[in-house]
Amino acid sequence: MTTKCLCLTMVALAGLLAAGCAEDKAAPTRPVIGLSVLTLTNPFFQEIADNMQKEAAKHGYDVVVVSGEFDAARQQNQVKDFIVQKAAAIVLCPCDSKAVGPAIREAHDAGIAVFTCDIACLASESQFVVTHIATDNYAGGKQAAHALLEALGDTGGKIAILDYRAAESCLLRVAGFKEVIRAHNRGGGARVEIVAELPCGGVKDQGYKAAEDLVQAHPDLAGIFAINDPSALGARAALEKADKDDQVKIVGFDGQPEGKQAIQQGKIYADPVQYPDRIGRETARIIARYFEGEKVPPQILIPTGLYRGKN
């Protein structure tokens, strides 16, 4: 009796697996593009994936989407799986700009064209990347600075930056931002002083804490530049609690729906907007052009647009 039970469980176990695997099994006869993104829990990457899929289909390619979920080793395994599946091309949003090197090397040695999007490879293997497609973060940072200067008007004042140093994209944003502020101060307008640069991890709760500390240290703070929407929204919440929300102007980055809504409501002054849909489409187009035998550029930067709602 129990033996039967045991057998039954094992069969059921195998059946469950079958259920988990039996879908999406349209045998891909068309060339396959393998995409491994940083995380699918951020709608930004979902939008890149969806648009890449749609655009690639027009050119006769199927896109298989997987996600490294911040785990560089997991992403490397996904690349190995793509190699076995003989993908035509592999697109990576690296989980770690340095650790992604060996995976890129391996794909290149197997004769597969590798592209990166949104996040660049900073290891020496970046020479094997055909094209990197991303937001022009440096110009975006400049745009943010212009927006914040506009918000401060003629008075100038003290401002702070909420940054995230692990991501190359965010470093570029801050660098572009600072350049414009420096140029402004040299130009002799009302002086704008960067009094603090605090890490915010790019997430709401840390943005909240950082902004709380900021207004304690600098009660006369006039503006904040946050490197993405979640940290900007976190900072806004802290300012509201400290009754400083009228005094301190915030400029964020990204232009995700939640950020745009906050701008509409006047909670954030403006956002340089990224276009993940365009990043996705452009990547698919570049791959199609590459296989048509065209020489493609090593880097494509997509400019940001400034979203300012009703302002």
Partner: peptide
Amino acid sequence: NGMNLTGVTPFRQEVVFGVVLLGAVLL
């Protein structure tokens, strides 16, 4: 590996994985 080869979405992979673990303990 099998789920990657057959194109199961990443989120569903975790569900299947959890169920398998449960099945093993049951066994």
